[in-house]
Design a protein around this nucleic acid. Structure first.
Length: 416
RNA sequence: GGAUCUUUGGCAGAGUUGGUCGAAUGCACCGGUCUUGAAAACCGGCGAGGGUUAUACCUCCCAGAGUUCGAAUCUCUGAGGGUCCA
């Protein structure tokens, strides 16, 4: 959530930043107005409540002294009606404010480039040169089927479209990649955690998926529970509602989970193959830091993801997302795109974001900052999306006859 | 699924004949005295959110609803945890 105090203090700066993310200034103005109205309603209610409290205390004293309370009771009863009305007013205001505030995205960092969509993203650097092919490289679904690694039809039979099944070496490679990535991240100082893949509404509010993006989530009908769209949700919320010691920070974690996304609005995109599935494996990095160290940890996370690809000998590039392509919670994001020779293009395989204090404010993750409590910074990044890594391996390591060479670093994980 | 108990501040743990309890006490933590330094001892401070220049004041004792002038304390519902039964 954006900082309402800051909004009150420096409306212009804030609305200028948010307008870069295409948030209408009138919305921000409305938010400010609602905040002021809430304050007013609160003051009104609290004044009445204070009256009530002091009269009640008096009441106790009267009783003890055996004095007549009938007159006092009349006053108190009359006041009660006013309190009820004031409380109702306050509640309405609160709800209005919250609904609006929770649906406003984070402010982009100042150095995030302006832009409309992914075409305006800015490449930072390329790592490893794409291999020269002496034949026309195939796309991964062709290779996957030819090698018997992935069965798309049977996935559909079991569930619905955008589900697949991995067999044999395909399945083994997924497992190998997960282990390889987790170990790699551990060596970089990220503690491994294993978390629930079903979470409640509150957790999703904390990281920003709710209330705005409920359509993208798989919900368990009978309960207010959802399948996670990313491990970022449970891992970041691990410390929700807590006040951490500064000495604990930064907390750096890595987790493997399956992820579930409805992909609402993605109709027609990447319908073939396993680029865009409803269920996929992902190894995630999450960090909770002080504001002073979040940029440094961001670089560590980015390096970690990029180095995994380098270790796998996969050509990739780093791209700074422009304001138009930035996610709801992110203040800054760098994507890593892996080279797919079959598609002759770079495709996203990782996304590292700093949300600054946006999630921290929603999830109430704070730390002892001297003698006061301050919001932490939270960061998350994939390292990496497992299915897409497998796709990249297939396309980059394919041979002319359609067989696929296994990257050397994975051999120990495959019992080879 | 049934019965029963339980849910308090970072942790442990008082507080259940409703009233000045935001909450004893211990530990942890912070500051000070003492010490060459540390430990011990002693003194002081120490939950969170809102609000204020600062006070005042408001809210929070799992969540929600209720009874009452007044609830951590009583009632109901729900959630988490324990034990027993099936």
């Amino acid at each position: 959530m954006i900082d309402l105090k800051l909004l009150q203090k420096d409306f212009d700066a804030m609305s200028a930043k948010l307008s870069r993310k295409k948030v209408d200034t009138s919305l921000i103005a409305d938010l400010k107005k609602k905040n002021e109205e809430l304050k007013k309603a609160k003051t009104e209610f609290e004044t009445l409540q204070a009256m009530q409290n002091s009269m009640s205390r008096e009441f106790g004293i009267y009783k003890k002294e055996g004095r007549d309370v009938s007159e006092l009771k009349e006053k108190v009863d009359a006041n009660k009606i006013n309190i009820a009305a004031a409380l109702e007013m306050q509640r309405e205001r609160q709800e209005e404010l919250e609904t609006l505030a929770m649906s406003i995205p984070n402010m982009p960092d100042d150095n995030v480039p302006d832009g409309a969509d992914e075409n305006d993203n800015i490449e930072i650097k390329k790592v490893l040169a794409p291999r020269e092919f002496t034949f026309t490289p195939k796309e991964h679904w062709e290779l996957a089927e030819q090698n018997g690694w992935i069965d798309f039809e049977r996935g559909v039979k079991l569930a619905t479209s955008r589900f697949s099944v991995s067999f044999g070496m395909g399945a083994k490679l997924e497992r190998a990649l997960i282990n390889f990535m987790l170990n790699f991240n551990s060596k970089r100082g990220f503690e491994e955690v294993s978390v629930p893949v079903i979470v409640n509404r509150n957790a999703l509010k904390g990281t920003g998926q709710l209330p705005k993006f409920e359509d993208d989530l798989y919900k368990i009908d009978s309960q207010e529970l959802f399948l996670i769209p990313t491990a970022e949700v449970p891992v970041t919320n691990l410390f929700a509602d807590e006040i951490l010691e500064e000495s604990q920070l930064p907390i750096k974690m890595t987790a493997y989970t399956p992820c579930f996304r409805k992909e609402a609005g993605a109709a027609g995109r990447d319908t073939r193959g396993m680029i865009r599935q409803h269920q996929f494996h992902k190894v995630e990095l999450v960090a909770i830091t002080t504001p002073q160290t979040s940029d440094k940890v961001f670089d560590e996370m980015l390096a970690c993801a990029s180095d995994i690809l380098t270790a796998l000998e996969l050509p990739h590039r780093l791209v700074t997302l422009c304001t138009g392509d930035l996610g709801f919670s992110a203040a800054r994001t760098v994507d890593i795109e892996v080279w797919l020779p079959g598609q002759n293009t770079y495709r996203e395989i990782s996304s590292v974001s700093n949300t600054r204090d946006f999630q921290a404010r929603r999830a109430k993750i704070r730390y002892k900052d001297g003698d006061k409590n301050s919001m932490v910074h939270t960061l998350n990044g994939s390292s990496l999306a497992v299915g897409r890594t497998l796709v990249a391996i297939m396309e980059n390591f394919q041979n002319e006859d359609g067989t696929i060479t296994i990257p050397k670093v994975l051999e120990p994980y495959l019992g080879i």
